[in-house]
Structure formats: C-alpha cells, structure tokens
C-alpha cells in the first residue's frame, strides 16, 4: 500500500496555505506580530538614535520578549485547530475518503501551516528590518537573521505541540483550550515554578540549567541570547556555567534539543492520529 506520496503532501500543503490566507486568526496573528515588532523596534530605536547608537542589540532584547509571548501562541492555537477543527466539521472524513493516507494528510497540514507561519514571521522580520535599516542599522544583520531562524524553529516547536494536542482530543474548542493552557504553562507558570523551586531547594547551577532546558521556550531564549552576545554572561552564573561546561558544543546542543522538540511531539501526534482514526 502506498504510504507517502510527496505530490499529495504538496497539494495538501497548498490547500492548507490557501485556508490560512482565509483564516481570520492567522491573519490577526500575522498582523499583530508584524505590528508589535515594528512598534517595539521603533520604540527602542527612537531612544537609541538620540545617542548615535544604532542598536539592534537593544531592539533584539525586546524582540525576544515579544517572540516568547506571541510566536508560541500562534503555533499552538493554529496547530490545535488543524485536526480537531476539521474533525468536528466532518471535513476530515471527506478528505480521507480521497486517495490520501493519514500520514500524507498530517504532513501536508504541518508543512502548509509551517510555511504560512514562517511567511508571517518573515513578513514581521522583513518590515522590522526595513525600519532598523532606515534608522541606521547596526553591524549585526547576521545576528538578526540568526534570530529569525531561531524564531522559525520556535514556531515549528509550538506547531508540533499544537498538532499533538489536536490529535489528542475530539473537539476544536477543547484543543484550543488545551493549547492556551499549555501556552500559559510554557511562557509563565513553568518558569515561575522553576524559580520557586530554585529558591526553596537552593538548586545548583547545573541542576537549574538542566531543568531550564526542559522548557522549549527557555531553550529558544538561551540560544537567542547566545546568538546576540556570543556568550551567556548576561544570564548570570548559570549562563557562565553552561559556556564553561559545553563550550563550542553548546550551540549544537541547544539547536539539537529544539529540533527534538519539533520531531518528537509530531511523531507522537502521527501515532495518535493513526490509532484514533478520523472520527
């Protein structure tokens, strides 16, 4: 039996892209991301410009904060809606009545949504980059592109997690609810919990660093800081510990863990989807 035909995957991805262009949530996210990053950059640059400091460094710091909030929200909710929404509407059944396998459907949806989200991110970064250029730039355009690539990784991570939630539950509303819950956990409560734990249990730097790496958002943030500064002094003793311990292995380690966060949830989602079927 035919299991995977890339032409079919491509057609499904195209369909997903077309759907995304009509999806009000997606358009809202894209506009919000572009608007907020432009606003933040304008704010940071208008101040820095007064001192002749063409500082992308500062812009990037506020960008990291924005990305940490909004990008996982985009990936998680859109991913969560992808299967559950269509399952609820019955269109999933209709799709799978065509000569299309479950794997092809899942891959096509993932690729389509991933492309749509990356387009939104590229749009936001492109417009913000123009603004930074007009305001006198900064030498580190490669750093900026590095941050863009990391943001793409982060959106893939959250999309993959969204797919997992979507394969898990029956109804779209439940999936989105779960996605929002997970988003809160990853952005805020996970870190707060870890901070509390560190304070109470007096965790060592190595323990703290290892525990922080469990959260993909922390992974992204640490990698982004490393990308901007080429070291982790900014993150205090734990950052210095990480550099001392892993040295040049640190970046591959961080990127590898992020990639793992993309692949693993998606694989589980595939298994769940296959076992559960379309209904």
């Amino acid at each position: 039996m035919r299991d995977l035909d890339f032409t079919t995957v491509f057609i499904l991805a195209q369909k997903e892209l077309r759907d995304a262009r009509r999806n009000r949530w997606f358009l809202l996210y894209a506009a919000a991301f572009a608007g907020l990053s432009l606003g933040l950059a304008a704010l940071a640059l208008s101040g820095a410009g007064n001192y002749g400091l063409a500082g992308f460094g500062r812009t990037s710091a506020s960008l990291i904060n924005l990305i940490l909030l909004i990008v996982p929200l985009m990936g998680l909710t859109l991913g969560a809606l992808s299967l559950a929404g269509e399952r609820e509407k019955g269109t999933l059944l209709y799709l799978l009545a065509q000569p299309v396998t479950q794997l092809e459907l899942l891959l096509g949806k993932f690729v389509g949504l991933a492309l749509a989200l990356m387009a939104a991110i590229a749009l936001g970064f492109g417009l913000t980059g123009l603004l930074i250029g007009v305001n006198g730039g900064g030498a580190q355009v490669t750093t900026y592109l590095g941050l863009l690539l990391l943001t793409c990784l982060l959106v893939l991570v959250s999309l993959s997690l969204g797919f997992l939630l979507s394969a898990l539950v029956q109804r779209g509303a439940t999936a989105v609810g779960l996605a929002l819950f997970l988003w809160l956990g990853l952005t805020i409560f996970g870190d707060l919990g870890l901070m509390g734990t560190a304070l109470i249990l007096r965790l060592n730097v190595d323990q703290l660093f290892a525990l922080a790496l469990i959260n993909p958002l922390q992974l992204f943030k640490i990698t982004a800081v490393f990308n901007i500064r080429q070291n982790l002094e900014l993150l205090g003793p734990a950052g210095i510990y990480a550099i001392r311990t892993y040295g040049s292995q640190l970046l591959p380690l961080l990127i590898g863990l992020l990639t793992l966060w993309i692949i693993a949830p998606f694989l589980v989602a595939i298994q769940l989807f296959k076992r559960k079927g379309v209904l």
Partner: peptide
C-alpha cells in the same frame, strides 16, 4: 542563579 530567567515573560 535566577538571572537565567532574564527576558522571560
């Protein structure tokens, strides 16, 4: 050590 959480929401 908590400086590790800088920039976190």
């Amino acid at each position: 050590n908590l400086r590790l959480f800088l920039y976190s929401p």
